[in-house]
Design a protein around this nucleic acid. Structure first.
Length: 576
RNA sequence: GCCAACGUAGCUCAAUGGCAGAGCAGGCGCUUCGUAAGCGUCAGGUUGCAGGUUCAAGUCCUGCCGUUGGCUCCA
């Protein structure tokens, strides 16, 4: 299996060279960046000195096909750097020269494919015919070496597979997945919308709001169990506190500022919740006996994002975190992290979500002592291991104020989105001169754990919609039961059933429109309503009322109302 | 913010530079129906916004706004 995937990767890498060779024909002056194989395909970065259009792409694709058909050899050669440097200088390949200069070895490998000569580690297939069926997907801009300080190159994405069947399956799948994009589902199910009057901010519709509130309540209940206390701080705080927290210095480009008329003080909309919670902490002299103190807050936070980065519910400008700040002694860190991981697991498991865990360690620029960082990283690691978590280490990816654990969930297209995060912070307690009275009677400095589990309500709902393909678990459904009277004479009975279910806090609606049953069933299914109850002559009798139940496309036959009700309530309670 | 593409009715989409149109959704009428679309009819538009070219612009050009795919960043 391992070997198979390596083979595919090699072939895709060769496909990227094939792409480069084709590009070279139409843009003889093109400068080449890098062209690796990636998950599901490959790309190559070019500095073309020109823009590229849709037609150009198909021209390039045709040329690739031609080069493949004439079966060009892909030849490897190892040459000393002293030879490589003049070669790529002659070819005018600045980016390649930059790469060569960074290679420590005395010699480098180059691969030739027709006129195209590339600095490349390889490996490659031996000739172009060995490259499987391919397709150019799209173009994108990408900074050279990923830094916005560098020039922007034209990246062309493509994909290649072992055979036609795999390729068309992949392309087909990609189209299918668009149906499960949360932005599409959100509009279809009338959950939320976006408007240019407030780009990157969500307008929650009545049904979306029900989902939203249920999720928050779930979070509230489970966190209460874990000893959290909910607080609420203001959305606007004056500039001084953001300067004190140093958010102003590090974060001001992402902050919104507010200035009231005739007032000299400037405020900012909070981009984070911490300062507010710290102020609450500081209203009392705290004792070591009180710690850990766990403040949770469902606070709206505001972050001005670069316009090109907004993305449905996944990346917005205004959102609510299931935030918490836990104030602990240094000795308590490990156990508390363990508790948070346990909580996170319990939450994610409720939804059956798969997630990846990353431990992010000390970055190049950091504050505090190295020993403290090492100790903190070791604590985080131990907590992960004790909880039997699989995790990867993201070297140097920690925040400047402390290491962190991130939980990443994936969208339908396989893109990862960070949701939960646990961040250790030694800095904020310093800046705000936070204290607790230790057992010795002397003041001590607490450590802050910043953490979210869902991440943001917005992003998490997006993930859920895609995960369930719109078929949310019953307890989250805006409408849990839809009653469909067959004819107008069944209307009364339908209302009665609805009332009875409402008494039990079941979210129920009656579709009393003058439409055929088939039509109403169709609309109920499209609205992803889990239970459709049909009521007609057969269900109505003198002593007992029944409902004909259909759930998620399956006909369950007739059920006595009491039994149906019991089933619904138990499913809701068990969060199934 | 950067690179590129896109923006027509609530939604999905048509319309060689030459009269802005269809299906669905919506209103009204008929139909009272048994598990994914009953029939008819009516209404719906400053073609994202602002300029420009042209006898004529949804279509071509410029700027802005928004969206999408990436880059960067991040919950």
């Amino acid at each position: 299996m391992e070997k198979e995937s390596n083979k595919l990767e090699t072939m895709r890498h060769s496909a990227s060279h094939l792409l480069a060779a084709a590009v070279l024909k139409f843009y003889p002056k093109a400068k080449f960046g890098i062209g690796p194989a990636i998950e599901n395909g490959f790309y190559y970065d070019f500095d073309l000195g020109a823009t590229i259009s849709e037609q150009d792409l198909s021209k390039i694709e045709n040329e690739m096909l031609r080069l493949k058909t004439i079966d060009l050899k892909i030849e490897k050669e190892t040459i000393p750097k002293t030879q490589a440097l003049p070669l790529f200088t002659k070819l005018n390949q600045d980016y390649k020269l930059e790469l060569i200069n960074e290679i420590k070895a005395k010699s480098v490998t180059v691969y030739k494919l027709g006129d195209f000569v590339d600095l490349c580690r390889g490996p490659h297939v031996s000739s172009t015919r060995k490259i499987g069926p391919f397709k150019i997907i799209n173009t994108a801009g990408a900074y050279w070496r990923g830094s916005e300080k560098n020039p922007m190159m034209t990246r062309i994405y493509g994909t290649a597979f072992a055979d036609e069947k795999d390729l068309s399956e992949y392309l087909n799948n990609l189209r299918q997945l668009q149906k499960y994009d949360h932005r599409k589902i959100g509009a279809q199910l009338d959950l939320f919308s976006f408007h240019q009057q407030s780009p990157g901010a969500v307008f929650w519709h009545p049904k979306g709001k029900i989902l939203y509130e249920n999720l928050i309540n779930f979070s509230r209940e489970i966190q209460a169990k874990y000893g959290y206390h909910e607080v609420a701080a203001p959305d606007i705080l004056n500039l001084d506190i953001w300067k004190q927290s140093s958010h102003y210095v590090h974060y001001k480009n992402a902050m919104y500022f507010i200035q009231a008329k005739n007032e000299s003080i400037s405020y900012a909309l909070r981009p984070m919740d911490c300062p507010g919670e710290i102020l609450i902490y500081k209203t009392q002299t705290r004792s070591f006996r009180e710690l850990p103190i766990r403040f949770s807050e469902y606070g709206t936070i505001f972050r001005k994002e670069l316009s090109g980065t907004l993305h449905g519910l996944f990346r917005v400008v205004q959102f609510v975190q299931d935030d918490a700040h836990i104030f602990v002694t240094e000795e308590q860190i490990k156990d508390e992290i363990s508790q948070i991981i346990k909580l996170a697991k319990e939450v994610y498991q409720t939804f059956g979500l798969e997630f990846k865990v990353f431990l992010s360690t000390r970055p190049a620029e950091f504050v505090g002592k190295v020993e403290a960082w090492d100790k903190a990283e070791a604590d985080l690691k131990k907590a992960l291991i004790n909880n039997k978590m699989d995790f990867e280490i993201a070297e140097g990816e920690g925040a400047f104020y402390g290491p962190k654990i991130d939980f990443q969930l994936q969208d339908v297209f396989g893109r990862s989105w960070q949701c939960g995060t646990i961040q250790l912070d030694f800095q904020m307690p310093e800046k705000f001169e936070m204290e607790y009275v230790g057992s010795s009677g002397k003041p001590q400095r607490p450590v802050i754990l910043h953490r979210t589990i869902l991440g943001s309500m917005e992003r998490f709902i997006g993930v859920l919609l895609e995960h369930f393909k719109g078929n949310l678990p019953l307890w989250l459904c805006p409408v849990q039961v839809l009653i469909l009277p067959i004819a107008s004479r069944h209307q009364k009975a339908a209302e009665k059933v609805a009332d009875e279910l409402k008494q039990k806090n079941i979210r129920v609606e009656v579709d009393s429109r003058n439409l055929t049953v088939s039509k109403k069933v169709r609309e109920g299914e499209l609205d992803k309503i889990p239970y459709l109850c049909i009521i007609g002559d057969k269900e109505i009798s003198k002593d007992k009322i029944k409902v004909a139940v259909r759930t998620r496309g399956k006909d369950m036959g007739q059920l006595a109302l009491a039994n149906f009700q019991k089933q619904v309530i138990s499913t809701i309670t068990n969060k199934k």
